[in-house]
Design a protein around this nucleic acid. Structure first.
Length: 812
RNA sequence: GCCGGGGUGGCGGAAUGGCAGACGCUACGGACUUAAAAUCCGUUGGGCCAUAAUGGCCCGUGAGGGUUCGAAUCCCUCUCCCGGCACCA
């Protein structure tokens, strides 16, 4: 009659869903499920990575709806960022217009793939109605002293002309443009993520629905180390030098102190010593060094005193000591630290062992390598003989009593630098006044909107070229003042967008707490693993901060997280520069959205990388065509038969087989989708069911029609268009978009007879079909008498193992 | 260097203590066709034996060892690949 016309079918159903506003959701439905996919940057075209992310999301959304959930599945746009600004610079296009037309384009592409979003909740972060609330949150952070301005060495990308967060620097290169990042001193705004370091770390344990990989990455990133701060008196000065160490147990082995050349107190330490001139020389030289060397260092001429044994320790400046970790100074224990050992050996400093190596053959002097493990203390006065782990606590206790040290926890995590010297971002709502200083913009003046009278051709900060924007009056004294011209990192936008979706039109606040508490946390979040340490950490930080503002009640934003793998072609990530990009829209036009979705979900489990393979795409298309042709061939027999046949009516062998297969498939697919979103195996099971329908096919098989309807229900979340179409053409009482997820019956899975494998010494030698409740003895007997088994039973039978319902293993 | 994940046919991948390779792709053979495409049917881990044919046997999940009646699956050692962190004291 008519072949499978995917374009026609898909267009028709997409229109129908849109007209019926089928996937919109109320603020307070009965059975909420919040499914969130990471919103895209509106570059203008969607790519395969998006398709994969959103195909997974949509299949889950549709599956959950069929299970009776009221699914909120919103979509929006991460609409601030550099490319819009570059388009303005290079082609003179207004960034706003550029962005909005990209959004239109991409929205059309997403719709053509049949994704079931509640578009009424759509947000775009470049909209003043959205970024107004970034500014409100910023002010609230400022009020709580969680936002501050500081002059620091920042990572500066000369090509993007902006400051980068630590997370955005990869191998000393800019994450965006790969140019080399340089260090530059600049004023910038920071959020105090470090205040939440402890909680961010501790609550990772609650995130059982997250991939352990991401949890590990965050743990690493936060980088907690537990140790102690210890104060060392400086000889001839009534000053102290504080260090941080994780190994206070090795304190007796400290033979020198090492201070970072960038330490603020360097000059104070060397002043008045005969090394002063040499040190200044050294500092000049070291400043230029980009590669740091462990052996690079110089004696300062000053000594510190070891608080536990009063030993004089020479203080060195050492290039290997980081200025911005711990206190910027360390106590060096060459016998038990690799770097200290290398430095000490090079500079001829004494090496004192204080931990016994468990398997050291001889305690010969002239240690060839440091021992960094645990063990019994030696050369440590009253602590000698104590195990290092215990000594750690005892020594800190002693220092605490003497007021010379205390327990301390340090984190690798730094505060989040949010200032960007760019135009296309959220303006930071701060005004600088000569007499009043730093003044927050009053809330009633929000949003501070981006001006349009800017000069995109100037190379410095574009925002500062707007007279209208920069010049303003101080909200406090009314005198002329100027605005902050930095804009916010776009990760600010994405740190709370999941909450905005709940009440996207709230004009009075970022979101309505009641609605947000009703929906949050997000039940399932899906996106790329590349956001493990940035977006996902910042969002967690924001969530906790907003909780402490009293805006919401929960501790974490995302209960379950799925990080999908990349889409590869020829084993490599698709990229324009490599020229190995497959355009999703072309694929969708050629094979149809259903085929693209089917392939994407079938070719690999969601979390693994997926190799794009066009012949496998064709394979997916062929499967849908086969189903379509089956419908054409058997239209009359299938029409209207959506309900399960009465099992008592079924007696033919083929009917029984197919009935059981159908129930089995429902069970397996339900299980695959419910627990782990294993679409690949779910689809495979459906293919098996379809194969079985053909194997057991006859025009009078009374199960076929029902099995076909089961197939249609089970695959609907993955390939919705074709199955809505088939359901309609077959005049099913219910369309799969409305019907409940099918149920299986355990009874139908029960069989009277089962096949048992017979092994001899663990090798399969035969199989037999027996009654399901055959007692063990008879099972053994029957196994032993099998002809094929007999010939392996020449020697004595030692043991027989019976696994009920599965196998008999005879050991000879 | 440290932490995590992994190694299964020609390929993507199934199987998490009980029949290895489900499902699909590719390739090959056949049917249909003037022909091709599409479609349909069959074969497809390696080796060997047998045959008119159904068949039968051995080996096989990165390597080696162990636990077990039985291991892709659990344990130990090694190796290679991928990801993250990396002078963090």
């Amino acid at each position: 009659m008519s072949k499978y016309e995917h374009t026609e079918i898909e267009t028709r159903w997409q229109q129908s869903w849109r007209q019926e506003q089928r996937f919109e959701i109320d603020d307070y439905p009965e059975n909420p499920f919040y499914l969130l996919v990471m919103y895209p940057y509106p570059s203008g075209r969607i790519h395969m990575g998006h398709v994969r992310n959103y195909a997974i999301g949509d299949a889950i959304a549709r599956f959950k709806r069929k299970q009776g959930y009221d699914v909120m599945h919103p979509m929006g746009w991460d609409a601030f960022g550099l490319p819009a600004e570059n388009a303005a610079i290079e082609r003179g296009i207004d960034p706003g217009e550029w962005t909005r037309s990209n959004i239109e384009e991409m929205k059309g592409q997403l719709d053509k793939l049949g994704f079931s979003y509640c578009w009424q909740r759509e947000i775009a972060t470049c909209d003043p109605d959205y970024y107004k609330w970034n500014q409100k949150i910023f002010l609230e952070l400022y009020r709580h002293k969680l936002a501050y301005r500081d002059l620091t060495g920042v990572n500066w990308c000369p090509s993007c002309e902006t400051v980068l967060a630590n997370e955005q620097v990869q191998d000393d290169e800019c994450w965006r443009c790969d140019s080399e990042v340089v260090e530059k001193n600049q004023h910038g705004w920071f959020f105090k993520t470090t205040d939440y370091a402890e909680e961010l770390l501790a609550d990772l344990d609650e995130l059982r629905g997250w991939p352990s990989r991401v949890v590990e990455m965050q743990k690493n990133w936060i980088g907690q180390s537990i140790g102690a701060k210890i104060q060392f008196e400086l000889s001839d000065l009534s000053e102290k030098l504080e260090v941080f160490t994780t190994r206070p147990d090795t304190l007796f082995g400290a033979t020198y102190m090492a201070v970072s050349p960038e330490h603020p107190r360097v000059m104070e330490i060397v002043r008045g010593t005969d090394q002063e001139a040499a040190v200044k020389e050294f500092l000049k030289r070291v400043e230029k060094n980009s590669e740091k060397q462990t052996t690079e260092g110089i004696f300062t001429g000053r000594y510190a005193v070891n608080p536990v044994n009063n030993k004089q320790l020479p203080i060195y400046l050492a290039d290997y000591v980081l200025a911005d970790y711990g206190t910027g100074a360390i106590m060096a224990v060459p016998a038990h630290d690799d770097r200290d050992f290398e430095f000490a050996s090079h500079h001829g400093i004494e090496i004192v062992e204080v931990i016994k190596q468990p398997d050291s053959s001889a305690d010969a002097d002239g240690l060839s390598s440091p021992y960094t493990g645990e063990g019994e203390l030696i050369n440590s006065a009253e602590f000698t003989g104590v195990h290092s782990e215990k000594a750690r606590e005892q020594i800190v206790d002693l220092l605490e009593q003497q007021n010379r040290g205390e327990k301390a926890v340090k984190f690798r995590l730094r505060d989040w630098g949010v200032s960007r010297q760019r135009y296309w971002g959220t303006p930071i709502p701060i005004i600088y006044c000569d007499s009043c200083g730093t003044v927050p913009v009053p809330e009633e003046d929000l949003p501070v909107e981006l001006p349009s009278d800017v000069d995109f051709q100037q190379s410095a900060n574009i925002l500062s070229s707007s007279r209208e924007f920069v010049h303003t009056d101080c909200p406090e004294c009314g005198e002329p003042a100027h605005r902050e011209t930095d804009t916010m990192d776009t990760f600010v936008d994405s740190s709370w967008y999941y909450a905005r979706y709940c009440t996207p039109f709230d004009e009075n606040r970022p979101f309505d707490p009641d609605v947000v508490n009703f929906w949050l946390p997000v039940d399932q979040y899906i996106g790329g693993v590349e956001h493990a340490c940035m977006h996902l950490l910042y969002s967690r930080f924001f969530h906790k901060v907003m909780r402490d503002f009293g805006w919401l009640d929960t501790d974490e934003p995302f209960v379950r997280l799925l990080t999908q793998g990349m889409v590869l072609l020829g084993g490599e990530k698709m990229s324009k520069s490599k020229g190995n990009v497959v355009d999703p829209e072309e694929m969708q036009q050629q094979y149809g959205a259903d085929t693209v979705r089917l392939f994407t979900l079938f070719a690999a489990p969601p979390e693994k990388d997926l190799e794009w393979d066009e012949s496998a795409v064709q394979g997916g298309h062929r499967f849908l065509k086969r189903i379509w042709n089956f419908f054409l061939d058997n239209r009359e027999m299938l029409t209207g038969k959506q309900s399960s046949p009465d099992p008592d009516d079924i007696d033919g062998e083929a009917e029984k087989k197919l009935l059981k297969k159908s129930h089995e498939t429902i069970k397996n697919v339900t299980h695959d989708l419910d627990t782990e979103y294993q679409f690949n195996t779910a689809i495979a099971a459906c293919m098996e069911l379809f194969n079985s329908m053909q194997e057991n096919f006859s025009p009078d098989n009374r199960v076929v029609a029902w099995s076909f309807s089961v197939l249609l229900e089970l695959l609907y979340p993955i390939t919705p268009h074709i199955f809505c179409e088939l359901a309609e053409r077959l005049q099913y009482p219910q369309n799969p978009a409305d019907s409940d997820w099918p149920q299986w019956s355990e009874d139908a899975l029960q069989e009277e007879e089962i096949e048992i494998v017979i092994q001899v010494n663990g090798k399969v030698r035969d199989r037999m079909t027996v009654a399901v409740d055959l007692p063990r003895e008879q099972l053994e007997q029957q196994a032993l008498t099998q002809e094929k088994v007999q010939k392996y039973l020449k020697s004595e039978i030692k043991k027989i193992i019976v696994v009920p319902g599965k196998l008999v293993n005879i050991v000879v």
